[in-house]
Amino acid sequence: MKLTMVAATGGIGRHLVEQAVAGGHDVTAVARRPRDLPDGVRAVAVDLARPDMRALASAIRGADAVLSALGPRNPRADAGITSRGTRAIVTAMQAEHVRRIIIVSAAPVGPVAVPGRPKPPRHDPGDGIFMRYLGAPLTRAMFGRHYADLAMTEQILRDSGLEWTVSRPPKLTDKPLTGRYRTALNRNIRGGFSVPRADVAHHMLAMMDQPETIKQIVGIAS
């Protein structure tokens, strides 16, 4: 498949690129400063904080799918980049008639309200007692602006008319790829407190062949 990877040199993005190349896919890597990419990968420099729409459209043109690991380097200081960047990606995809997009969000986002979803559930249905009453509220208190931006990002996809999927992992680690993780549609994973970035990338690639994940939110955890 012909794939466009956004934020291709970040924590999850570099795994997406490496695993896609190993799987024989034709990869275009989008990053602010593309570097250290595998041989044969087409690199396109785009700063998603201030996107060059012409360059972004050229990166997306002809793709079978876009996989985005876009997120802030510092969740407290850089909140806002994910929704702004995703809006630009969606606009470019619509202009180029590319339909499939898979993005990374985060497990605590479900109960966060946005204008298009003013009364979300009070708790994620997959969370246990600890996460409902301590873990998730604490992380939202610490990174509230970041999670509000991710919730807005998800709303942008819901309104896009595209064939979208949202991956919601919990705490990300740099442990090596295992290929062993749990997933669930429209809920977090009970007792799932972390997952390797490499496994999130592995699952994002796998979902390209899973039509049941289209227009769904997918929880993932070890």
Rank of each mutant, 00 (worst) to 15 (best):
G192R: 01
D199Q: 08
G13P: 06
R158M: 11
V166R: 04
P211V: 10
V90M: 09
P196Q: 03
D52F: 12
H146W: 15
A148K: 14
R180M: 11
G144Q: 05
Q216G: 03
L185R: 14
V41L: 11
D52L: 13
E18N: 14
V44D: 05
R117Y: 09
M204L: 15
K171R: 11
A69L: 01
V27E: 02
V166C: 01
P72D: 11
D149V: 08
A198E: 05
G71N: 07
P176C: 03
S222I: 05
G40W: 13
T139D: 03
I101R: 00
P211L: 11
G71F: 08
T86R: 01
H203Y: 15
V46P: 02
D127F: 13
S194Y: 04
I102H: 00
D199T: 06
V90Y: 07
A22C: 12
I189T: 04
P120L: 09
G13S: 11
D199R: 03
L162E: 04
A7D: 08
D64T: 10
P72M: 11
A45F: 09
T178F: 02
G135E: 09
A92M: 12
D52C: 13
Q216F: 00
R87S: 12
R140E: 06
R87C: 08
A29D: 10
D78N: 11
V30Q: 06
R122C: 00
A201Y: 04
M131N: 06
P176T: 08
R197D: 06
A49I: 10
M53K: 09
V200N: 00
A206H: 06
A148S: 14
Q210K: 13
R122A: 13
G191F: 09
A20S: 14
G13T: 07
R187M: 14
D47W: 07
G116D: 13
D47Q: 06
R87G: 12
L37R: 12
G144P: 05
P75Q: 14
I217W: 03
P115E: 15
D124M: 07
P51Y: 13
I89D: 00
A92K: 05
I81G: 02
L37I: 12
A69E: 04
A55F: 10
L138D: 05
P211F: 12
G24A: 06
G179S: 12
P169L: 03
G23M: 08
T183F: 08
A7M: 07
L162A: 04
R100A: 00
R54M: 10
G24Q: 07
